[in-house]
Design a protein around this nucleic acid. Sequence first.
DNA 1: ATGAGCAATCAACATTCGTTGATCAGTAGA
DNA 2: TCTACTGATCAACGAATGTTGATTGCTCAT
Lengths: 110, 110
Amino acid sequence: MMIGMTTTIKRRDSGVNLFHALSDVTRLEILERLKDGEQCVCDLTEALKTGQSRLSFHLKVLKDAGLITDRPEGRWTYYALNQEALEELEAVVQALQGSRRGVGSSSRCR
Amino acid sequence: MMIGMTTTIKRRDSGVNLFHALSDVTRLEILERLKDGEQCVCDLTEALKTGQSRLSFHLKVLKDAGLITDRPEGRWTYYALNQEALEELEAVVQALQGSRRGVGSSSRCR
DNA sequence: ATGAGCAATCAACATTCGTTGATCAGTAGA
DNA sequence: TCTACTGATCAACGAATGTTGATTGCTCAT
């Protein structure tokens, strides 16, 4: 099955966004926490022992990348994993592995 | 099955490294090129239409992350995907998805 | 209405990252 | 040996990112 150029480029762009959001220890810790279910910012602040504005910053990065969703309720905001984004991540990573076709057909310089 | 704390932390660290290396368009383009087999820097320079030192910089980032390997031969250096690292990437991503246990058991603030 | 608590946003600053051009080291060929 | 070529490294600069503390907007309870 042939994948069009446009699809490839789009996947690359969304890849950059996702990977950037994931390239920070604090953000990975947040995601790990959220595996147990949705949490409000106050929970996370305590769990990660970090300042509120710092946490808020990282949550925004994750949310902008689509990796988490927020659900404001009263004075709290609950954050949760976005399963869809994780599936897209899977797809992007598998696209990296590639078809493995042509391995060994290395071009030779001269 | 229980995974020890140390393992989790190590995976998180290697995750940060891998994800950071992947969070750049040029570097994703390089990896895509390498799916077709190993290539020397001169090939890549031409293919990506970019400066040599810039390319060298990105290759170093990918190599430091373990995503590619280099094989110097004569005056050329051939780069290739490191399949092992891609497999580890898969593992890290799957760990992100988590066991899905306890979904809905969201802690409630009051 | 007032006060307290949660979370987003802002400004200022520090740090990290990517780019560019130049230089350097190693190799191959004349 | 001398020259040409590949690719790594360096320094300098600019841009993007992350951190901190303060402020703001909202909601709930009194």
